[in-house]
Nucleic acid binder design. Structure first.
Length: 262
DNA sequence: TCCACTGTTACTCA
DNA sequence: CTGAGTAACAGTGG
């Protein structure tokens, strides 16, 4: 599930559930999601601390406390939910943070492809995110265009490379390229000035709607709404959509709306 | 049983 | 060094 819009939704969950509240206890129900730390170290770092304003960078969520920072990554199936401590614990609830005020923050993840990291201070938190490109929601046009122009790979691969631009995943990249009428296989460095402008604008608009929805919405008027159709048709021109694989990910595009460029 | 899946990374090859 | 492809991680579902 999680791409930037989903993680932005989790940031809001974290804020409304945990900001200003003290961590009373931490239950690790599956240590497989802890990276570079033990249950003991996680408890020692967080119990008694109060969560402050959370932040997001790309697909990373930062739960700050003024001291240590908990970094959360949701892989493909992770979620963050706010519950009451006595609510029934669902399947795949891996870590439970019981907070003051009768709240419980729950990190849930089916596949455990990513998980939780702990940074003892802001310096270490920054170091964990050092490889990330600019956040896709915060990046300005100039920075965006510079990042694209400096890579000769296919534009879809570049858009989903978190070290170039942080936040876009497989669905969003397809959606943005479709909206900007660009074929995913075009070389990023071959994009014209007009292409890059359309791409930036398309990304902003797509992200804005998706953040409001809290996910990449499978709307009928979006490409994403048709990925799983048996014979998917372009919502704009009704042409049969094409499906292929790029960098091991399924890629969907419209052969008519997204011309070759040549 | 086989295949796919909104993520990331280590590894190979060109 | 760059870019592209693959398997692997783990779990579920069609």
């Amino acid at each position: 599930m999680p791409e930037l819009p989903d993680v932005e939704g989790f940031r809001k969950v974290l804020k409304s559930c945990a900001k200003g509240r003290v961590v009373q206890r931490v239950d690790v129900r599956d240590t497989g999601v802890l990276h570079g730390m033990s249950t003991r170290r996680l408890r020692d770092a967080l119990v008694g601390r109060r969560f402050t304003e959370p932040e997001r960078h790309g697909k990373w969520l930062l739960a700050r406390t003024g001291g240590p920072t908990l970094l959360l990554h949701f892989g493909m199936t992770g979620q963050l939910a706010c519950a009451r401590p006595d609510d029934v614990v669902e399947a795949h609830n891996r870590v439970l943070f019981t907070l003051g005020g009768g709240r419980q923050l729950r990190y849930r993840d089916q596949r455990k492809l990513q998980g939780l990291w702990l940074a003892d201070d802001d310096f270490e938190a920054a170091r964990l995110l050092a490889g990330q490109g600019p956040d896709a929601l915060a990046v300005d046009r100039a920075e965006f265009e510079a990042a694209l122009s400096s890579h000769r790979g296919r534009v879809k691969t570049v858009l989903t490379d978190q070290s170039v631009l942080a936040g876009l995943g497989n669905l969003l990249a397809d959606e943005v390229l479709w909206r900007a009428r660009l074929r995913p296989t075009v070389r990023a460095s071959d994009l014209t000035e007009a292409d890059r402008r359309r791409l930036y604008t398309g990304m902003r608009r797509t992200l804005r709607s998706a953040v409001t929805a809290g996910c990449v919405p499978p709307r009928d008027s979006w490409l994403t709404g048709h990925r799983d159709d048996p014979a998917p048709a372009c919502p704009r021109c009704r042409t049969l959509l094409r499906r292929s694989r790029m960098a091991g990910r399924s890629t969907v595009w419209c052969p008519r709306c997204q011309p070759d460029g040549s």
